[in-house]
């Protein structure tokens, strides 16, 4: 409990730090906001096409499809605000010596290195778009408003964030062994875009790959599938188990990476 309040207070401090430094560089906030909105706009073209052609896949009407896309935007927003910039900085921290200082602190190194740089401009357009799409879908499809469903949805979103965190943390960690991992980072983050659409549109092999091997669909396909009542018990359990397993895996790789650093660096 004491540890939890300590970490929450630190999160608060990181947020405060972000806000204070943004006061200094106001333009950067708006620039990022505009750039992110444009990126979002280019992704919304997919939704536009879906509505335009009145596409129905596996019994999912366009509104149901936006439930998937919206959930994807919400999870991207969370990832973009808390983790994204930390992951891109990870490689730098080795070269600029900030890793050395971080190691000497009595605090979880992984926590410190992966959440300390927060950003609030990246998530705003994504979150707004995602929230609008999800609420709209919820209303038009007359989905259940029961607390169990809503809590379950939020629960699977949290698991989705955990899954995305674990998958996307791996490429920057690889840079402890190999010099450059930008190419891999690029490819892996491209993988998560598969979630823009319900997994039903993909062929069977891709579905299996994305559910069991690199469970990218757990990120943001599972929460809407849960709400639509399309997850059987086995999938429900796998949706909980996989993020935990992958998180533990990422944790082990993280520790190995730091170990590697400690034994070879100078």
């Amino acid at each position: 409990m004491k540890e939890l309040t300590k970490h929450l207070r630190l999160m608060g401090l990181f947020t405060k730090r972000y806000i204070m430094s943004q006061m200094e560089y106001r333009t950067s906030f708006f620039t990022i906001l505009i750039v992110e909105s444009l990126i979002l706009l280019s992704k919304l073209l997919y939704t536009a096409v879906v509505y335009n052609t009145d596409m129905v896949v596996d019994g999912l009407k366009p509104e149901a499809i936006t439930l998937f896309t919206g959930t994807f935007f919400i999870i991207s927003a969370v990832y973009g605000s808390i983790f994204m910039f930390n992951f891109t900085n990870l490689q730098n921290s080795v070269y600029d010596g900030s890793l050395d200082i971080a190691i000497t602190k009595p605090i979880s190194l992984q926590f410190y290195l992966t959440v300390s740089t927060i950003d609030l401009a990246v998530p705003i357009p994504n979150f707004i778009a995602g929230a609008v799409m999800v609420t709209n879908a919820w209303k038009t499809l007359e989905l259940s408003m029961e607390p169990v469903v809503i809590i379950g949805y939020v629960f699977y979103i949290i698991l989705g964030v955990l899954m995305l965190y674990s998958i996307l943390l791996l490429p920057p960690l690889l840079s402890f062994w190999f010099v450059k991992s930008e190419g891999i980072s690029h490819i892996v983050s491209g993988l998560s875009n598969f979630n823009m659409m319900p997994m039903a549109i993909y062929p069977k092999a891709l579905k299996i790959f994305g559910t069991f091997i690199i469970p990218i669909f757990i990120v943001s396909n599972f929460p809407p599938l849960f709400v639509l009542g399309r997850l059987n018990v086995g999938m429900k359990l796998w949706g909980i188990l996989a993020p935990i397993v992958f998180f533990l895996g990422a944790r082990i790789v993280f520790k190995k990476a730091i170990q590697k650093y400690s034994s070879i660096a100078n």
Binding site: Y46, L191, N193, M197, L206
Partner: peptide
């Protein structure tokens, strides 16, 4: 990846 996503779309 965008190629694959769009193709199946």
């Amino acid at each position: 990846f965008p190629m694959i996503i769009q193709t199946f779309l």
